[in-house]
């Protein structure tokens, strides 16, 4: 009876309604769809990527968001320590947006919005 055994969440919006991606955006989308197949090893990379982005590509939702979300879902439910929340904060933020705007989850994962994670400091360029 775990969440993992649930059928993939129903899409709330028609995929064809997503704006058409430029060649560059489509390449980025496919790159992340591929990288997402090899999570957890790419989790840090995904979190870093989402640091500066609201969605995976461009400034609007795309199929890539739904694809990558489906790969991260089981992990999202397992993160509860402050350490994990802090380490994966950008994935959590993005995934919460995806689940509430693009999907219709029966049981959305919950986010503790006021979790006191340490402030991030921009890494100095090497």
């Amino acid at each position: 009876m775990s969440d993992l055994e649930q059928p993939l969440q129903k899409l709330r919006i028609d995929v064809s309604a997503f704006p058409k991606l430029s060649a560059e955006e489509a390449a980025l989308a496919s790159q992340w769809t591929t990288l997402a197949l090899r999570l957890p090893e790419n989790l840090a990379k995904l979190n870093e990527f989402l640091k500066t982005r609201t969605y995976i590509v461009g400034n609007s939702p795309s199929e890539a968001d739904v694809d990558v979300f489906s790969q991260t879902e089981s992990m999202l439910r397992s993160w509860s320590s402050i350490e994990d929340l802090s380490r994966y904060r950008h994935i959590i933020r993005w995934a919460d947006l995806v689940q509430h705007t693009l999907l219709e989850p029966k049981t959305p994962f919950t986010v503790n919005y006021s979790a006191e994670v340490p402030r991030e400091i921009k890494a100095k360029p090497e």
Binding site: L85, I92, R93, W94, T101, Y113, A115, V117, R119
Partner: peptide, 18 residues
């Protein structure tokens, strides 16, 4: 700005999802 920064830790918008 620190307050706003921590408010946006797990939020894409200031309130809700749009």
């Amino acid at each position: 700005l620190e307050k706003l920064e921590s408010h946006l830790n797990f939020r894409s918008f200031i309130v809700g999802f749009k």
